[in-house]
C-alpha cells in the first residue's frame, strides 16, 4: 500500500504485517460475540448514540448501536457491504426520514438533546450536521450558486458581497478556489469528479456546520482526486467533527483517529485507529482487516 498522502499526524500502518501481529493472540473476542467491544465512550463527546436501531420495514438494518463521537476528530466507519454503516451515518442528520419505510429508534444526543425528539427540526439539524454523499451531486447550476445555496436559504448573509465572501472562504477551505475562481458562473456539473466532490464539501461547509458526515466520499474518484480529498479531510478536522464511511481500510487508517467496525448490522468494535489496525480485540475485526472477508 503506497499511500499517496502521508500526513504527519497519521500513524504509519502496514496492513500486510497485521496478520503476523494478531496471529498468535489468544485474548481476541470470539466470532460469536455480537456485542460491541472497545472504547465506545469518549471524553466530551459531540454526538452520543444509545441503542440506535434502524429498520427498513420489518428488516433491521442496524441493531443496538451505542457510540460516542469525539469533537474535532475523524471517525471512520468500516465494514463489509450491507453492514449498516451508511444507515447509521444517515441517522446522524436524519437523512433516513426521506425513506418512507425507514424507522429509527434509540437516542442520538447532540448538545444534550435527542435529535429524534419531538422539538427537533430537521432543517436546523441539517444546518448543523452537513453531509457529503458517495456520488458527487452538485446542483445543475453555477459553481457560485452551488456554494451560495445553503447560506442563502438559511439567511447567513444579508448582501451579495457577504455571500461572495462565504463562497470564497468555503471554496478556499475546500481547496478548490484556485481552480475555479475564474469560472464561478459556470455549471458545477462541468467540473471533474474530484473537483465536483470538493465542490460538494465546499457546499456543506458554507453553512458552517459543526459536524460533517461523509458517505464514501472517494468511492467514485480516482487515486489523485482521492488523495486531495483525504488531505482536505485531515485539514477540516481542526474545525469540524467528521464522520466518514469508507470501504477502503487504507483510507480509514490514513485519515481517521478512531475507527468503528460494523458487521451485519452490529457495531462490533470501536477504538483508536492505530489499535484497531494493529491489535483488534474482536476476531471479526481481525478477519476483516486482514482481508479474510469483506
Amino acid at each position: 500500500m503506497d499511500s499517496i498522502v502521508n500526513p504527519t499526524n497519521i500513524p504509519a500502518v502496514h496492513t500486510t504485517s497485521i496478520s503476523d501481529v494478531v496471529k498468535d493472540r489468544s485474548d481476541v473476542v470470539s466470532r460469536e460475540n455480537r456485542s460491541t467491544v472497545g472504547e465506545t465512550i469518549v471524553e466530551d463527546p459531540r454526538i452520543s448514540c444509545l441503542d440506535v436501531n434502524v429498520y427498513y420495514g420489518e428488516k433491521p438494518a442496524i441493531r443496538q448501536v451505542g457510540l460516542e463521537i469525539a469533537r474535532n476528530q475523524v471517525i471512520a466507519m468500516i465494514g463489509p457491504s450491507g453492514c449498516g454503516k451508511s444507515s447509521f451515518l444517515r441517522c446522524l442528520n436524519r437523512m433516513n426520514d426521506t425513506i418512507p419505510a425507514c424507522q429509527v429508534t434509540g437516542k442520538i444526543l447532540m448538545d444534550g438533546q435527542d435529535i429524534n425528539g419531538k422539538g427537533i427540526d430537521t432543517v436546523l439539524l441539517r444546518a448543523e450536521v452537513g453531509m457529503v454523499f458517495q456520488k458527487p451531486n452538485p446542483f445543475p447550476k453555477s459553481i457560485w450558486e452551488n456554494v451560495a445555496f445553503g447560506p442563502r436559504i438559511h439567511g447567513l448573509a444579508q448582501t451579495k458581497k457577504e455571500l461572495d465572501e462565504i463562497v470564497e472562504k468555503s471554496l478556499i477551505q475546500a481547496g478548490l478556489w484556485d481552480e475555479v475562481k475564474d469560472r464561478l458562473n459556470q455549471p458545477g456539473t462541468g467540473l471533474s469528479g474530484g473537483q465536483q466532490q470538493r465542490l460538494c464539501i465546499a457546499r456543506a461547509i458554507a453553512v458552517n456546520p459543526e459536524v460533517i458526515l461523509m458517505d464514501e466520499p472517494c468511492s467514485a474518484l480516482d487515486p489523485i482526486a482521492t488523495a486531495k480529498i483525504e488531505e482536505l479531510i485531515d485539514k477540516l478536522r481542526l474545525d469540524y467533527t467528521i464522520c466518514v464511511v469508507t470501504h477502503s481500510m487504507q483510507q480509514a487508517a490514513r485519515i481517521s483517529q478512531r475507527t468503528a467496525f460494523f458487521h451485519l448490522g452490529d457495531l462490533i468494535e470501536v477504538g483508536e485507529t492505530k489499535q484497531i489496525f494493529t491489535k483488534p480485540l474482536h476476531h471479526l475485526t481481525e478477519d476483516y482487516i486482514t482481508g479474510r472477508f469483506g
Partner: peptide
C-alpha cells in the same frame, strides 16, 4: 434524480 433532492436536504433546505 434523488441525489439532487438529497443534496438540497443535506445542506438544510426545507
Amino acid at each position: 434524480p434523488p441525489s439532487i433532492r438529497e443534496a438540497a436536504l443535506g445542506v438544510g433546505a426545507s
